[in-house]
């Protein structure tokens, strides 16, 4: 009877969810676990665990350089995109704003279009205006890529603020700058921090645009990409494990700042 199906359904749902989680997380376990063992002739030697891959990594100059590049690019992209995103969000909500929909459309383009299109367009553009490819071009690429998300996050928060807050501030004689610094900024700060973390995480992983607009330097994902084409080795696995650990932390921090209240509400907050 139908009753049986009704009773079976929840179990089936849980099973499917479990399968998806195995698909999402299972593959990642392979490099993480094998990073603690040595690989000889393409097969993992499970007999004794070792940290040698991690030690070797610390001495790998090209990886350390790539890490450094990634951090600089990430910081640059975060600063540019948060400043721009906040500015544009403020402009969007101001009564003087012209062509709001158009402006927003341009900002969303790099996010909606495949990264390969954004990357190639920038590549051609930089060549045309004879702008040499360097760290700066990577930062520009990352900034336009993450801008949509940063802008949207900040705008959403800005629009959720009560208008009377700003009106009260003006009524009390505050200047525009004072209103921004003393009223808006404190209310926006958590959205800005969340957006910054999110932007950093996206920049940290960005590969497709970077691959196209980079000069001689490579960021960590681009370096990893080059290493991975050679095969499955302990040093890649160790690097993979570290990067995964780092992005997971970043993601959890971002979620903490950005999760809509409604999602956490009802959960016993600590």
């Amino acid at each position: 009877m139908m009753r049986l199906a009704d009773r079976l359904a929840p179990a089936l749902l849980m099973l499917m969810t479990l399968v998806v989680f195995v698909l999402l997380y299972g593959p990642l376990m392979v490099p993480i676990v094998s990073s603690f063992f040595t690989v000889s002739r393409g097969a993992v030697d499970w007999s004794q665990p070792t940290l040698s891959a991690y030690v070797a990594l610390m001495a790998n100059e090209s990886v350390l350089n790539a890490l450094w590049t990634t951090l600089i690019v990430g910081a640059g992209a975060v600063i540019c995109s948060v400043a721009l995103g906040t500015g544009i969000a403020l402009y969007y909500t101001s009564p003087h704003a012209k062509g709001r929909a158009f402006l927003q459309f341009i900002i969303f383009l790099p996010f909606l279009m495949p990264p390969i299109i954004t990357g190639l367009a920038l590549l051609i553009f930089f060549r045309q205006v004879e702008f040499e490819r360097s760290l700066v071009t990577i930062i520009i690429g990352h900034t336009v890529f993450v801008l949509a998300l940063v802008y949207r996050t900040i705008l959403t928060r800005l629009q959720s603020l009560s208008e009377s807050l700003v009106e009260a501030s003006y009524d009390l004689g505050a200047s525009r700058w004072q209103t921004f610094r003393l009223v808006l900024l404190p209310n926006l700060s958590s959205a800005m921090v969340g957006a910054a973390v999110l932007a950093f995480a996206l920049s940290f992983d960005e590969t497709m645009i970077t691959l196209l607009v980079t000069g001689t330097q490579s960021t960590l994902p681009v370096r990893l990409w080059a290493m991975m084409r050679l095969g499955f080795t302990p040093d890649i696995n160790a690097l993979v494990a570290l990067v995964l650990l780092f992005t997971t932390i970043l993601c959890l921090v971002a979620v903490r700042f950005l999760m809509p209240k409604s999602a956490i509400e009802g959960s016993d907050e600590d």
Binding site: D205, P221, C251
Partner: peptide, 11 residues
């Protein structure tokens, strides 16, 4: 979603 795309492919 935020985990490195390249790493996921590799895995």
């Amino acid at each position: 979603l935020l985990m490195s795309y390249v790493i996921k492919i590799y895995a």
